[in-house]
Each structure stands twice: as C-alpha cells, then as structure tokens.
Design a protein around this nucleic acid. Sequence first.
DNA 1: TAAAGGATTTTCT
DNA 2: GAAAATCCTTTAC
Length: 202
Amino acid sequence: MTRRPLPAAFYARQTELVARELLGAVLECTVNGTRCRGRIVETEAYTGEEDLACHAAAGRTARTEVLYGPAGRAYVYFIYGMHWCVNAVTRRAGMPSAVLIRAVEPLEGIEAMRRRRHGRPDRELTNGPAKLCEAFGITGPRHHGASLISSPLRILEGEPVRDEDVAVTPRIGIVKAASDPLRWIVRSSAFVSGRRPRRDET
DNA sequence: TAAAGGATTTTCT
DNA sequence: GAAAATCCTTTAC
C-alpha cells in the first residue's frame, strides 16, 4: 500500500495534539533491506522544559540537543542501560518537546520482529516503547536525529482514529520531584489492552 | 494476578 | 553517586 509520509507541518503543532493525531499513523523502519511497519496505538506527550518528566527539564545538553531542533525528527534515547525508545520531535526549534511512541500494532515485517524479539508471542512484539524499538531495529546510532519524513525511519499517513476509540489514561508519579506529576497516555486499540500496566498507571 | 527485584549504562547532581 | 520516559523473571498469594 502506498502511503505518504506525514509532513513537517504535522509535527510543528501543540505536542498533545500531535500525540493524539499520531494514533492510527504508520511507523516504518527499513534496516538492511527489511521493512517493518506498524500502526501507532499508544503515545505520550512531553511538552517542554517546564514538564519535569521531559528530558528537556534538564536544559539544553548534548543529550537533549535534538529536542531543541526542528519538528519532525527522531529523538532516540537509551535508558536503563539496555533499551532504546523513539520520539517524534514537535513544535519548532527552541521549543524542546516530543511525543514518545509507546506501542504499535504490527502490520508488515512480522517475521523480522519475531526474530529480533527472540520468538516472543506476537502480542508482546511491539506493545511497549522499548519493545517496538527492538522489534523494528531502531537504535540511537542508526536513527537519533534523523528526519521522520525522509530517512529509513519514517511515519506515514494512516487511517484516522475516532474520538470514541481513544482512551486517555492518567500516569502518575513518573518523576518524583514533579509538582504536577499527572501525565496522560493516549491509546486507540485493543492491541495494548493486554499489556501489563505500569505501577504508576491506574 | 500482583508485586518485587535485577539487568546495565548513560546522564546529571 | 543516584536515578532513569523499561522489560523480564521470579516469588508470593
């Protein structure tokens, strides 16, 4: 199926809106000639320096440089000594914000995903932010800072998701020091309903 | 089914 | 030196 990449203007908007509208879009990553695709079903907004859970709360550093750049690029970070996670940078240069891709539903390249995920059950291939990066072969060295419009890691137009199919769930206490530690995850599919909830998720 | 702990390295205090 | 935008296994009920 032919799908167009979402344009830079899509990302250059309020972060929460981008998080909502990324539901239904298609994440695509081609590594060594193998293409994987998945429908985005769970996202989370990180809104800027004032958002204490956002990496930009630490200010402009080598790590957060990409967040301060233009919208529509990939912010790929390494966490807990072993996992990669991927974000879409939003708004505009100088406004450090992004949307974390928390889960996708596999559409294409499922054999490669099973291989990279060591034969885990299909439900467990991509139902978490680090799981989907492992399944798709997304890593910082390969993809950090790359354009989501033109690089081998892209986000394509999908089918819009209706409001009645979206669940918004609070996520509490992600950062201990946060004075307003209430965040939201938006979901659009039964695919992630079987995911084990986080301790800080109700 | 839920809770707890370990893995493992980067990042900032 | 502590914590981290997580995942997986083990243990307990």
